[in-house]
Design a protein around this nucleic acid. Structure first.
Lengths: 284, 284
DNA sequence: TCCTCTTTGAAACTACATTTCAATATTTTT
DNA sequence: AAAAATATTGAAATGTAGTTTCAAAGAGGA
């Protein structure tokens, strides 16, 4: 989407090397300046080089300086942030509902901003072309995987979603080049998912990841990287809550994009699925 | 400021020479495209030249193409639309994302409005008091059930979530009065869920339902009725999409409410869960 | 019809984003 | 502690894309 550049920078801060961090700090302090400056300008003003600016853009997962510029421009016209609010003991039902609503919406909005359209497009095409899609996630992410599988099956795309590592390993060991492995892990550091991604990579099977925004083991192994907003999980100890909504949201976008690309086919499949369900249910 | 590019173009329209007007029209129709295209690209796509794009920028009183780009980026960050919008064939990725975002947010907002706080409170107390919670749903709702189970287990509440009707039937047949059966069905007319609810009722086991808003077989059998917004599913044939988010959202509220009611215990449980996971992972 | 003023796009030009690379710092290994 | 491997850095080279120029074509007026 056309915003979120500043948030991306904030989230990446700690993971950046010195020169890029200088640039990052400069930009956070002078976002407006970025819009009217050249890469070299910014480099000099932040007491480092222009190359560092480009490197920062790449570190953020963006395609280049133009991309960053556009996202920052978006940030500058946005109304004030809502932000996440944690839930505290002895809170009323009313305010729990309010906070949950606003946190949920916020995590969807933030994830929207993180979307890299080119990456999304590549994901859609890769999935559309795949013979089989193997979703894999553990715990909460395993549920997202199951959900995604159900969706793909609905539009006639073969998909698996197991949570047994050994089983999946066997599956991938025998997978064809036409298959795609889709690893889901909010933290991006779930060891099971990492192993599966590594195996897929080694076997030359295409991989897609869905993790929180930022550098992580899982995403760095993936050919195509999709992200949910980083902060989703941050504030409440209350277990994976918003992050799950955001993951589903991204999956919805993927699914709907695939469906749109092959619209006619899809409508047909969904209708047939409905018929099949009705048939089983009502026997007619 | 960093916006208003599109409005500028609209205002200038009549005063523009043919070639620039072609560009102007193209931009108004494909503002998103502008952000990822070069001047030459746009020239060609609008059946004229790149030079015309620059001339348009100058005619608008801007300093150049970058300036226009930044302003259009600002324009595209508009507040979310109200209402549901269906997704159509040949839609751009950009607008799929926009519509999915607004539909998702809308379904959460609408579900918030549907909440009956008294019913919510009863649900929370019933669940908190339960010895065992049996979640049950088929298909997409089965995933919500699994998710809910995971959440409850995290806070030390026994919960099951099977999709096998016979298995669940046996479970309920042997359930104690301290148990709760939680039926999930978006339509409220899934026959398997209806049967389970009926069985629970007959056995005198407490029941909670989560369905779309309105009268339905499942909800009418439940002691406590929770709802998601009706319209969630309405507009797109594109399979259960927003409805699922809304269901999760309601579950989040339930979970967080339960967690708040027994805050200290919960924090403790979550920490213990984390420790357990870390232990398994890292062996320390 | 001829002249003047405007518009147009191809090509030349220029500026700036991006890549490369050698030097340097940092971490890991032995 | 030394050596090797790895990561970081900015200056310079490169390539891409924005901008300007200019000759040709078109529009309007005398």
């Amino acid at each position: 989407m056309a915003a979120g550049g500043l948030k991306m920078i904030q989230n990446m801060m700690e993971q950046l090397p010195a020169s890029e961090r200088k640039i990052a700090e400069f930009i956070l302090e002078n976002p407006q300046t970025v819009l009217n400056s050249t890469v070299q300008d910014i480099g000099v003003q932040a007491h480092t080089s222009g190359a560092a600016v480009i490197r920062l853009c790449k570190s953020l997962g963006l395609n280049g300086f133009q991309d960053l510029k556009v996202r920052i421009a978006g940030d500058l016209v946005k109304p004030v942030e809502q932000g996440y609010r944690d839930i505290e003991p002895g809170e009323s039902f009313f305010s729990i509902v309010q906070k949950t609503t606003s946190n949920s919406i916020q995590s969807i909005r933030d994830s929207e901003e993180m979307i890299n359209f080119e990456e999304l497009e590549r994901a859609v095409h890769t999935l559309s072309a795949a013979q089989n899609v193997h979703f894999f996630g553990i715990g909460a992410s395993g549920i997202i995987a199951k959900d995604a599988q159900q969706k793909l099956l609905r539009i006639h795309k073969n998909a698996t979603a197991f949570t047994d590592t050994h089983l999946v390993a066997t599956l991938i060991a025998n997978a064809s080049q036409e298959d795609v492995v889709f690893g889901i892990s909010h933290s991006g550091e779930t060891s099971e998912v990492m192993k599966i991604m590594a195996l897929a990579k080694e076997r030359g099977v295409k991989t897609i990841s869905l993790t929180k925004y930022g550098q992580s083991s899982v995403s760095s192994m993936a050919d195509i990287k999709l992200f949910t907003s980083y902060s989703s999980e941050a504030p409440f100890r209350s277990a994976a809550t918003s992050s799950r909504l955001a993951q589903l949201y991204i999956m919805d976008i993927l699914f709907l994009s695939m469906a749109t690309v092959q619209y006619e086919d899809t409508i047909h499949s969904i209708d047939k699925t409905r018929e099949a369900i009705r048939f089983i249910k009502e026997g007619k």
